[in-house]
Amino acid sequence: MDAAQARAWVAAIAASVTEHAAELGDLDAAIGDGDHGVNLRRGFDAAVAALATFEADTAGAVLTKTGTTLVSKVGGASGPLYGSMFRALGKALPSDDASFADGLQAGLDAIVRLGKASPGDKTMVDALTPAVAAYAASGPDAAAEAARAGAAATIPLQARKGRASYLGERSTGHQDPGATSTALIFAALASVSG
Rank of each mutant, 00 (worst) to 15 (best):
A92W: 10
D102K: 15
L108I: 07
V112L: 09
L70E: 11
D57Q: 11
K65Y: 03
G67M: 03
L51N: 09
A110F: 05
D45L: 00
T53C: 00
K73A: 14
D102T: 14
G83Y: 05
A98V: 05
L70R: 05
V71D: 12
G90I: 04
G76W: 07
G90Q: 08
R87T: 13
P80V: 02
L108T: 09
A52V: 01
G76S: 08
D45Q: 10
T64N: 13
G76E: 10
G103H: 04
V71I: 14
F100L: 15
A47N: 08
A77Y: 03
A52E: 15
P94F: 02
V112N: 05
G115W: 00
F100C: 12
A47E: 05
L51C: 05
P94N: 05
A52S: 15
G60F: 04
Y82K: 09
G107F: 09
A46G: 09
A77S: 14
A98N: 08
K65L: 03
M85Y: 09
S84G: 15
D109L: 06
L93N: 12
K73W: 10
A47Y: 01
S118I: 06
L51F: 03
G60Q: 01
I111Y: 02
T58R: 13
A56K: 03
I111A: 12
A92V: 01
V112S: 06
G103I: 03
A49W: 05
Y82N: 13
V74A: 08
G107K: 07
V71Q: 13
V71H: 04
D57K: 10
T64E: 15
D96M: 02
A106L: 02
V48T: 09
V62G: 07
F100V: 14
A47T: 06
V48Q: 11
K116M: 06
T58C: 07
A56H: 11
V48K: 14
T69W: 01
A106C: 07
K122S: 02
G79F: 01
D97E: 14
F44V: 04
F86Q: 10
A110G: 09
L51S: 08
S118A: 13
G90R: 04
A77E: 02
A92Q: 09
K91E: 15
D121G: 06
R87L: 02
V71P: 11
D102W: 04
L89W: 11
A92Y: 09
D57T: 00
A117S: 14
D109Y: 00
A101V: 00
F100H: 11
T53I: 04
G90Y: 00
S99R: 15
M85C: 10
L89P: 02
D57G: 13
A101T: 00
G107H: 06
V112M: 14
S118C: 10
S99M: 12
L114D: 10
A61S: 14
T58E: 10
G79R: 02
S72M: 13
A98R: 07
A106M: 02
L104G: 03
V74M: 04
K122I: 01
S72H: 11
D102C: 06
P119D: 06
Y82E: 07
Q105E: 14
S78T: 10
K91W: 11
G103N: 08
T68I: 09
A59T: 01
K65I: 00
L104D: 01
G90K: 03
A106K: 11
S72Y: 06
G107E: 13
D102F: 00
G107W: 11
S95R: 06
